[in-house]
Amino acid sequence: MSALIEAEHLTRILPAIVPVTLVRDVSLTVGEKEFVAVTGPSGSGKSSLLYLLGLLDRPTSGTLKIAGQDTSQLDDDELARLRLESLGFVFQFHFLLPEFSVLKNVELPMRKAGYLSASEMSDRATSLLEDLGLAGHLDKRPDQLSGGQRQRVAVARALANDPHVVLADEPTGSLDSKSSEQVFTILQDLVRKRGKTVIAVTHDMDIAARVDRRIHLVDGKVVSDERVAQAVV
């Protein structure tokens, strides 16, 4: 199993009059096809860690390699490119552009990347959305969908450029239990069927219990990192 993400001694300190340490000396390696849950009490730095891994934030110290590439040498534009092509995000709130249709929202990262023709983008976005059970909603606007549906659109958008890693920040945090279950199943399928690596920050113990690997943070430090053999594959 080759390492997709290699973090060494990652530390993130918020500069302030009294500096706040969000992430403290975290080292971890995540390989292909892993389903990782990051858990911890609120304020333990699990979201901050995710933003660091997702290149949305830069560490105060430590190194981070994505697919073998050292990210500390890259400038902001190069980081943005890497984010666009190698990483996909799903947030607690769907964060879709309200003025654009579901289809256009999913096409957006592809258009930014600019590798595909208009018809290829539209085909790919349609098939992603159909796979996630949104076949009838392509031309609707985000505010016409339910919370669970929106979150599935967000997943489709995260998959748009076929990234290696999908990072999810409390993906079920604002959903009811039924929708949560749907979204979880989808994330699980990403790993099982599409061969993605998913790293999800969650405080939902029900979800955390059903992943391959659990990383528990307290006060920005990794206190446990355990792999779980799942009964059901």
């Binding site: 949305l56 943005a80 984010r83 666009l84 092509e85 552009l97």
Partner: peptide
């Protein structure tokens, strides 16, 4: 929010 979304998707400052 849109700015945050677009930037997290990989849009640059220049964009």
């Amino acid at each position: 929010r849109d700015i945050a979304i677009l930037k997290s998707l990989g849009f640059t400052q220049r964009n």
